[in-house]
Amino acid sequence: MLHVSETVKIIGKMRESKDTYTLEFKWDAPAVPGQFVMVWIPGVDEVPMSLSRIGKIKAITVKGIGEASNAINDLQVGDYVRLRGPYGNGFSIKKSKKVLAVAGGVGVAALIPAIKETGCDTIIGARCEGEIILDDVARKYSKSVWTSTDDGSRGFHGNAVQLAKKKMALRDYDLVIGCGPEVMLYFLHEACKENDVECQLSLERFMKCGAGVCGCCMMDRLRVCKDGPVFGTEELDGLSDFGTRKRDECGRIVDLR
């Protein structure tokens, strides 16, 4: 069976920033860069998290923003956690391609496995210096890692997309991969079109089953959990919901802007 569930023991916990932790566990399920798992916190919730490591030892990197994510970050080494997955299509990167990875905030977690596999140039953007995470990990695999902060406290003063535009103008990239807030990805997609560079972006929608069954994570006719979460240039062009609309837990349309 492709998708399995397993209860695993936390074997490592690292603090990445004041509200973000990486939790490591042993799990030999096959996974590709860009896939995610559903993480259950008994009595609280079950939420999607990208795999920030995909080998025999896997990891998730979680920013505490609410009840479930904070509960995950309260887990300690030795605690058990039940996971479902890995789900989703992941990035599909040909070896020959010259790749630029563009991350916003905790979105870098989903890109680390792809950065590891390709050693690609990487931009990590955040609001301020304290929120730049996993740049040390990225530097282990990539020779060119640039940072950007909205307040200029570290690296390029501006957002990740502005920096990506500069880099695209200087170097010939074949492919941009990205993960971060949807507005950022929307403008990254625009920037890639302007520069005639293919892109693959990892998107988010509210998820329940994660397995392409319940239909709650639809963007137009596609399921973010199964047809995505990574969508290519052409798919993104065809998604009228991209950057404009999402659906709530009842299936009602909510405008993003």
């Binding site: 079950e46 397995a211 709530d248 837990e249």
Partner: peptide, 13 residues
Amino acid sequence: EPRPGHRNPTFTE
């Protein structure tokens, strides 16, 4: 009426 359904987890293989 609109209904959010049960809270996750709502599904498992």
